[in-house]
Computed example of a mutant assay.
Amino acid sequence: MPNLQETLDLSSYVALGDSFTEGLNDPGADGAFAGWADRLAGMLAEGRPPGGFRYANLAVRGRLLDQIVAEQVPQVRRLQPDLVTFCAGGNDILRPGSDPDEVAERFETAIAQLAENAGTVLICTGFDTREVPLLKHLRGKIATYNGHMRAVADRYDCKVADLWSLRAVQDRRAWSEDRLHLSPEGHQRVALLAARSLGLRTAEDPEAAWPTARVLTAADQRRENLQWAREHLIPWVGRRLRGESSGDHVEAKRPELLPL
Protein backbone atom coordinates (compact mmCIF):
# COMPACT_ATOMS: atom_id res chain seq x y z
CA MET A 1 0.00 0.00 0.00
CA PRO A 2 1.47 3.42 -0.89
CA ASN A 3 1.81 6.25 1.54
CA LEU A 4 -1.40 8.24 1.46
CA GLN A 5 -1.35 11.91 2.41
CA GLU A 6 -4.46 12.72 4.39
CA THR A 7 -4.23 16.24 5.77
CA LEU A 8 -1.32 18.19 4.26
CA ASP A 9 -0.39 19.22 0.74
CA LEU A 10 3.39 19.43 0.84
CA SER A 11 5.58 20.00 -2.22
CA SER A 12 8.78 21.26 -0.54
CA TYR A 13 10.66 20.19 2.59
CA VAL A 14 13.74 21.54 4.40
CA ALA A 15 15.42 19.49 7.17
CA LEU A 16 17.46 21.28 9.86
CA GLY A 17 19.59 19.83 12.63
CA ASP A 18 22.70 17.87 13.56
CA SER A 19 23.98 14.33 12.90
CA PHE A 20 20.58 12.82 13.67
CA THR A 21 18.99 14.64 10.73
CA GLU A 22 22.08 14.48 8.52
CA GLY A 23 21.55 10.73 8.73
CA LEU A 24 24.78 9.42 10.19
CA ASN A 25 25.38 5.68 9.90
CA ASP A 26 22.67 5.17 7.28
CA PRO A 27 24.71 4.86 4.05
CA GLY A 28 22.96 6.17 0.95
CA ALA A 29 23.34 5.05 -2.65
CA ASP A 30 25.38 8.13 -3.57
CA GLY A 31 28.01 7.58 -0.87
CA ALA A 32 26.57 10.25 1.44
CA PHE A 33 24.50 9.40 4.48
CA ALA A 34 20.75 9.08 3.93
CA GLY A 35 18.86 8.99 7.23
CA TRP A 36 15.31 9.43 8.40
CA ALA A 37 14.84 12.89 6.82
CA ASP A 38 15.85 11.62 3.36
CA ARG A 39 13.55 8.65 3.86
CA LEU A 40 10.70 10.94 4.92
CA ALA A 41 11.26 13.10 1.84
CA GLY A 42 10.96 9.99 -0.31
CA MET A 43 7.64 9.13 1.32
CA LEU A 44 6.33 12.66 0.77
CA ALA A 45 7.39 12.55 -2.89
CA GLU A 46 5.57 9.28 -3.63
CA GLY A 47 2.88 9.57 -6.27
CA ARG A 48 3.99 12.99 -7.49
CA PRO A 49 5.13 13.67 -11.05
CA PRO A 50 8.91 13.91 -11.65
CA GLY A 51 10.22 17.13 -10.15
CA GLY A 52 6.99 17.67 -8.26
CA PHE A 53 8.60 17.54 -4.83
CA ARG A 54 11.67 19.51 -3.71
CA TYR A 55 13.90 18.72 -0.75
CA ALA A 56 16.86 20.32 1.06
CA ASN A 57 18.82 18.95 4.03
CA LEU A 58 20.96 21.55 5.82
CA ALA A 59 21.81 19.41 8.87
CA VAL A 60 25.47 19.01 9.84
CA ARG A 61 26.85 16.59 12.43
CA GLY A 62 28.06 17.98 15.75
CA ARG A 63 26.15 21.23 15.51
CA LEU A 64 24.95 22.87 18.74
CA LEU A 65 21.63 24.70 18.88
CA ASP A 66 23.11 28.18 18.46
CA GLN A 67 25.09 27.03 15.42
CA ILE A 68 21.97 25.59 13.83
CA VAL A 69 20.10 28.81 14.52
CA ALA A 70 22.89 30.93 13.04
CA GLU A 71 23.69 28.78 9.99
CA GLN A 72 20.51 26.94 9.05
CA VAL A 73 17.42 28.73 10.37
CA PRO A 74 17.96 31.90 8.25
CA GLN A 75 17.94 29.74 5.11
CA VAL A 76 14.31 28.86 5.74
CA ARG A 77 13.32 32.49 5.19
CA ARG A 78 15.02 32.32 1.81
CA LEU A 79 13.65 28.92 0.81
CA GLN A 80 10.08 29.31 2.16
CA PRO A 81 9.29 25.56 2.28
CA ASP A 82 5.92 23.95 2.89
CA LEU A 83 7.51 21.81 5.63
CA VAL A 84 10.53 22.21 7.88
CA THR A 85 11.74 19.67 10.43
CA PHE A 86 13.74 21.11 13.32
CA CYS A 87 15.52 18.66 15.61
CA ALA A 88 18.08 20.56 17.66
CA GLY A 89 19.48 20.98 21.15
CA GLY A 90 20.42 17.36 21.76
CA ASN A 91 24.14 18.06 21.61
CA ASP A 92 23.64 20.93 24.07
CA ILE A 93 21.79 18.69 26.51
CA LEU A 94 24.61 16.12 26.41
CA ARG A 95 27.15 18.71 27.55
CA PRO A 96 28.02 18.80 31.26
CA GLY A 97 26.43 21.70 33.08
CA SER A 98 23.88 22.53 30.41
CA ASP A 99 20.48 23.73 31.63
CA PRO A 100 17.50 22.25 29.75
CA ASP A 101 15.31 25.21 30.77
CA GLU A 102 17.76 27.67 29.21
CA VAL A 103 18.28 25.54 26.09
CA ALA A 104 14.50 25.38 25.65
CA GLU A 105 14.25 29.18 25.69
CA ARG A 106 16.67 29.38 22.77
CA PHE A 107 14.81 26.55 21.05
CA GLU A 108 11.56 28.52 21.27
CA THR A 109 13.17 31.62 19.75
CA ALA A 110 14.16 29.51 16.74
CA ILE A 111 10.69 27.98 16.43
CA ALA A 112 9.14 31.46 16.39
CA GLN A 113 11.31 32.32 13.37
CA LEU A 114 10.56 29.08 11.58
CA ALA A 115 6.81 29.37 12.12
CA GLU A 116 6.86 32.67 10.22
CA ASN A 117 8.60 31.20 7.16
CA ALA A 118 7.36 27.63 6.75
CA GLY A 119 3.89 26.24 6.21
CA THR A 120 4.31 23.42 8.72
CA VAL A 121 6.99 22.83 11.39
CA LEU A 122 7.68 19.36 12.78
CA ILE A 123 9.94 18.80 15.80
CA CYS A 124 11.32 15.64 17.36
CA THR A 125 11.57 14.94 21.06
CA GLY A 126 14.69 13.35 22.49
CA PHE A 127 15.03 9.59 22.83
CA ASP A 128 14.52 7.75 26.10
CA THR A 129 18.09 6.79 27.05
CA ARG A 130 17.27 4.41 29.90
CA GLU A 131 19.11 1.50 28.19
CA VAL A 132 22.09 3.50 26.87
CA PRO A 133 25.38 3.29 28.80
CA LEU A 134 26.42 6.66 30.27
CA LEU A 135 23.53 8.51 28.61
CA LYS A 136 21.00 6.85 30.89
CA HIS A 137 22.19 9.23 33.62
CA LEU A 138 20.91 12.13 31.48
CA ARG A 139 17.40 10.70 31.21
CA GLY A 140 15.84 13.23 33.58
CA LYS A 141 17.50 16.12 31.80
CA ILE A 142 16.26 14.90 28.43
CA ALA A 143 12.76 14.43 29.80
CA THR A 144 12.74 18.01 31.09
CA TYR A 145 13.82 19.32 27.68
CA ASN A 146 11.16 17.19 26.01
CA GLY A 147 8.48 18.72 28.23
CA HIS A 148 9.54 22.20 27.19
CA MET A 149 9.61 21.24 23.50
CA ARG A 150 6.09 19.85 23.63
CA ALA A 151 4.88 23.07 25.24
CA VAL A 152 6.61 25.12 22.53
CA ALA A 153 5.01 22.93 19.87
CA ASP A 154 1.60 23.60 21.39
CA ARG A 155 2.18 27.36 21.40
CA TYR A 156 3.27 27.46 17.74
CA ASP A 157 1.02 24.70 16.40
CA CYS A 158 3.92 22.43 15.44
CA LYS A 159 3.70 18.74 14.66
CA VAL A 160 5.61 16.46 17.06
CA ALA A 161 7.36 13.17 16.37
CA ASP A 162 7.55 11.71 19.87
CA LEU A 163 10.77 9.68 19.83
CA TRP A 164 10.68 9.27 23.62
CA SER A 165 7.65 6.97 23.35
CA LEU A 166 8.85 5.09 20.23
CA ARG A 167 9.32 1.64 21.77
CA ALA A 168 10.95 0.18 18.65
CA VAL A 169 14.14 2.18 19.20
CA GLN A 170 14.66 0.59 22.60
CA ASP A 171 15.90 -2.43 20.67
CA ARG A 172 19.69 -2.53 20.27
CA ARG A 173 19.28 -3.15 16.53
CA ALA A 174 17.83 0.33 16.07
CA TRP A 175 21.30 1.73 16.81
CA SER A 176 24.60 1.56 15.01
CA GLU A 177 27.83 0.33 16.55
CA ASP A 178 28.63 3.73 18.11
CA ARG A 179 25.36 3.59 20.14
CA LEU A 180 24.86 7.32 19.52
CA HIS A 181 23.44 7.21 16.00
CA LEU A 182 20.67 5.16 14.50
CA SER A 183 21.13 2.12 12.29
CA PRO A 184 19.45 2.10 8.84
CA GLU A 185 16.44 0.29 10.30
CA GLY A 186 16.34 2.76 13.19
CA HIS A 187 16.26 5.65 10.70
CA GLN A 188 13.41 3.93 8.86
CA ARG A 189 11.39 3.61 12.08
CA VAL A 190 11.86 7.33 12.80
CA ALA A 191 10.91 8.27 9.23
CA LEU A 192 7.69 6.28 9.55
CA LEU A 193 6.90 7.95 12.88
CA ALA A 194 7.53 11.41 11.37
CA ALA A 195 5.31 10.59 8.39
CA ARG A 196 2.47 9.52 10.67
CA SER A 197 2.98 12.62 12.80
CA LEU A 198 2.30 14.64 9.65
CA GLY A 199 -0.93 12.78 9.00
CA LEU A 200 0.21 10.20 6.47
CA ARG A 201 -0.86 6.59 6.51
CA THR A 202 2.04 4.24 5.89
CA ALA A 203 2.06 0.59 4.93
CA GLU A 204 4.83 -0.07 7.45
CA ASP A 205 4.37 0.35 11.19
CA PRO A 206 7.16 2.16 13.09
CA GLU A 207 6.41 -0.11 16.04
CA ALA A 208 6.47 -3.37 14.10
CA ALA A 209 7.98 -6.22 16.10
CA TRP A 210 11.65 -7.01 15.55
CA PRO A 211 12.70 -10.55 14.59
CA THR A 212 13.74 -12.72 17.52
CA ALA A 213 17.31 -11.85 18.46
CA ARG A 214 20.08 -14.02 19.83
CA VAL A 215 20.38 -13.55 23.59
CA LEU A 216 23.85 -12.34 24.57
CA THR A 217 25.63 -13.84 27.52
CA ALA A 218 27.08 -11.58 30.21
CA ALA A 219 30.55 -12.28 28.78
CA ASP A 220 29.38 -11.25 25.29
CA GLN A 221 27.94 -8.02 26.68
CA ARG A 222 31.17 -7.18 28.52
CA ARG A 223 33.18 -7.87 25.37
CA GLU A 224 30.87 -5.63 23.28
CA ASN A 225 31.05 -2.86 25.88
CA LEU A 226 34.85 -2.90 25.93
CA GLN A 227 35.04 -2.81 22.14
CA TRP A 228 32.54 0.06 22.02
CA ALA A 229 34.53 2.03 24.59
CA ARG A 230 37.78 1.62 22.63
CA GLU A 231 36.36 2.37 19.20
CA HIS A 232 33.74 5.01 19.96
CA LEU A 233 33.59 6.31 23.53
CA ILE A 234 37.27 7.20 24.01
CA PRO A 235 37.56 9.03 20.63
CA TRP A 236 34.30 10.92 21.41
CA VAL A 237 35.61 12.03 24.81
CA GLY A 238 38.93 12.99 23.23
CA ARG A 239 37.23 15.29 20.73
CA ARG A 240 35.32 16.97 23.57
CA LEU A 241 38.52 17.55 25.55
CA ARG A 242 40.25 19.02 22.49
CA GLY A 243 37.27 21.23 21.64
CA GLU A 244 36.82 19.47 18.31
CA SER A 245 33.62 18.51 16.55
CA SER A 246 32.89 15.69 14.13
CA GLY A 247 31.28 18.39 11.99
CA ASP A 248 34.41 20.50 11.57
CA HIS A 249 34.93 21.12 7.84
CA VAL A 250 31.65 19.33 6.99
CA GLU A 251 29.08 21.11 4.84
CA ALA A 252 25.37 20.47 4.33
CA LYS A 253 24.82 17.58 1.92
CA ARG A 254 21.81 19.14 0.16
CA PRO A 255 21.82 22.92 0.72
CA GLU A 256 19.23 23.87 -1.91
CA LEU A 257 15.64 22.91 -2.57
CA LEU A 258 16.06 20.51 -5.48
CA PRO A 259 13.66 18.07 -7.10
CA LEU A 260 13.74 14.63 -5.50
Rank of each mutant, 00 (worst) to 15 (best):
V84E: 03
A59I: 09
F33H: 13
I111M: 09
P100E: 05
A115R: 12
T21Q: 11
D9T: 15
V60I: 12
F53V: 02
R77Q: 14
L58M: 07
E105S: 14
L8N: 14
A34I: 11
E71W: 06
I93L: 15
Y13M: 00
M43Q: 01
R63A: 10
A37Q: 09
I111E: 04
L79K: 03
A104F: 08
N91I: 07
I111Q: 01
A15W: 04
L16E: 00
P96Q: 07
A70G: 10
V69A: 14
G52P: 01
D30E: 11
L83V: 03
P96W: 08
A32L: 15
G89A: 08
E105P: 11
E22T: 14
A34Q: 14
F33T: 13
L58P: 01
L114G: 04
F33P: 11
P50C: 01
A34K: 15
V73K: 02
A115P: 02
C87E: 13
D9H: 15
V73S: 04
V73Q: 03
G28A: 12
E105H: 13
G17H: 11
Q75A: 11
G51Y: 00
N117C: 09
F53T: 05
G42E: 06
A112D: 11
P50Y: 07
A104P: 05
L44R: 06
G89C: 04
P96H: 08
V84G: 03
N91L: 09
A110H: 03
R39Y: 09
L40K: 03
L64W: 00
Q67T: 13
G52D: 08
L58N: 02
N91V: 06
L58G: 02
I68G: 03
G89T: 04
A37F: 10
F20H: 12
L16D: 01
V14H: 06
